[in-house]
């Protein structure tokens, strides 16, 4: 890639830091993202109420639930998988108020699943603090058949919908929570560049 060339649709992720100004905090993490939550509590225990939702299983096996139980004073909810966590999030949000701050740590797929739920409640993704932990794997939207192939770790991937070989572009849609996949050999059928794992 050209140096200094930065595609601005690509999200920037940071380390989680408590918002100083808030009425309450809601922290969501999966797998190894539990470490980001522990680091948050290393910073301080905020004065405002905190709720933590944690799903144990993600791409990379790293279960922090036992440590979290020791560190998070109250309102810690542990789930096995992301799906159950998201279902719980949908139940919690209607009862919360302006001033709630959201923090997410996990894979990119998880981060944008959370953002998708939050959006339904009027929360813009820019308000959510996001830390990318776990895998760099991408969700890839096939621009030809509109299917989304999840957990893509390579520069080129077969589409789960139409089976075309897709080149994973660095162009990201927050709406879809996915990168654009474009047929790689449309101009020269069958001629594929080397497939390499670059999003481990």
């Amino acid at each position: 890639m050209e140096r200094g060339y930065w595609i601005k649709s690509k999200p920037v992720y940071t380390s989680l830091v408590w918002h100083e100004k808030a009425t309450s905090h809601l922290v969501l993490a999966t797998g190894i993202g539990g470490m980001a939550v522990l680091k948050l509590f290393q910073q301080m225990h905020p004065r405002q109420p905190v709720t933590v939702l944690y799903a144990r299983y993600a791409q990379m096996d790293a279960d922090y639930s036992e440590t979290l139980k020791k560190v998070v004073p109250e309102n810690l909810y542990i789930f096995k998988f992301e799906e159950a966590l998201l279902a719980s999030l949908k139940e919690i949000l209607p009862d919360t108020r302006m001033g709630l701050r959201l923090y997410v740590a996990g894979s990119e797929g998880f981060i944008w699943d959370v953002a998708g739920v939050a959006k339904q409640f009027g929360i813009d993704d820019a308000e959510i603090m996001k830390e990318l932990t776990d895998t760099l794997a991408r969700s890839v939207y096939c621009v030809h058949c509109k299917s989304v192939t999840r957990n893509v770790t390579t520069n080129i991937v077969p589409c789960c919908g139409c089976e075309r070989m897709l080149f994973v572009r660095d162009h990201f849609s927050r709406n879809l929570g996915a990168y654009m996949g474009l047929m790689v050999d449309a101009e020269s059928p069958g001629e594929l560049p080397a497939i390499e794992e670059i999003y481990p």
Partner: peptide
């Protein structure tokens, strides 16, 4: 692609 770009801000849209 409209389907991909819909909802994007000015900067995201002109990213490439």
């Amino acid at each position: 692609s409209l389907a991909f770009n819909v909802g994007m801000s000015w900067k995201e849209w002109h990213g490439p």
